[in-house]
Amino acid sequence: MNNLEKIKAVKNRSTLYSNIREFFNEKKYLEVDTPSLSTTLIPEATIDNFATQFSSDFYPNKELYMIPSPEIFMKQLISEGFSSIYQFSKCFRNSEQLGKQHNIEFSMLEYYSIHMDEQDSIELTQEMILKTHLKETPSWALPPFKKMSVNEAMIKYANLDLDNNQKQSQLYKKALDLGITSINRYESWESTFNRIFLTFVEPNLPQDKPLILYDYPKQIDCLATNKKSAPYKKRWEMYIGGLEIANCYDELKDEEKIKEYYRKEYSTIIRERSNTNRVIPDIDDNFYSILKKAPQTSGVAIGMDRLLMSQMNIDNIEGVILFPFSDMMR
């Protein structure tokens, strides 16, 4: 970026943040500020973490982790009786992937709405973008949103109905029929699904308007509730211009299910990261019951750098970040 581009990116970010603060403040959401360093994390096998060390002459040393999302603290606030809350925070994801869409440190907007489900969050997010966007935003990055279920997208772009392919053996056969060669007979349903989705569906998703892709397969583990009548979770992702920008859940509160998620996810982390230099974070056994008494809540996380990219019509994350990590590495 040259100086003019830098100043423009900084001003636009400042405008967008202040518009969003005004939007949520008007709706009586409370802005919160939670730590970037944590002694435990919610286990997520697909996210690599950063660890550091607390060292002191007066206390025992302790390993600390940079948060990959403020979720762990914001859910705690909800459980303590806070009403709807939002936060802008810095998040950290350790990974080999540097590129046009990734920076290891990035800015996230998270908002948790009580007495709302993931469908209500679609409306809220649409209203938020409509009321807060930059003047220069191209029309493809503005509401009205398009909506499509994951299965509709699979049928449309891969000619594959997930309802009838719930078994790994069925999905494996479909993937072969589609011409995917790099597939492993014994991999998980989720892995095969992702191969098909990333090869045939994601690159073809409509880009003329923001797209909400909803009802993700239940086989993809996460802290969203299951739908009662179909093998999907109450979760959506928002794509703008083909880039994944937001993720939303109807938040799981069931203690046993959260415990089960922790157990599965943590065993994957241990299996994949033992004997490597990847960080194995500590987890908190008290977290399972944390939302037990909380009201129904829906949480949305938006990648602010990517949202800014869409509104400024820039296709490289380094065009909106002042000191990109890849520059520091040079």
Partner: peptide, 13 residues
């Protein structure tokens, strides 16, 4: 191109 599906492991396209 590296791609990361939401809640998915790292892929290369």
């Amino acid at each position: 191109e590296f791609v990361n599906p939401g809640k998915g492991s790292a892929f290369v396209r």
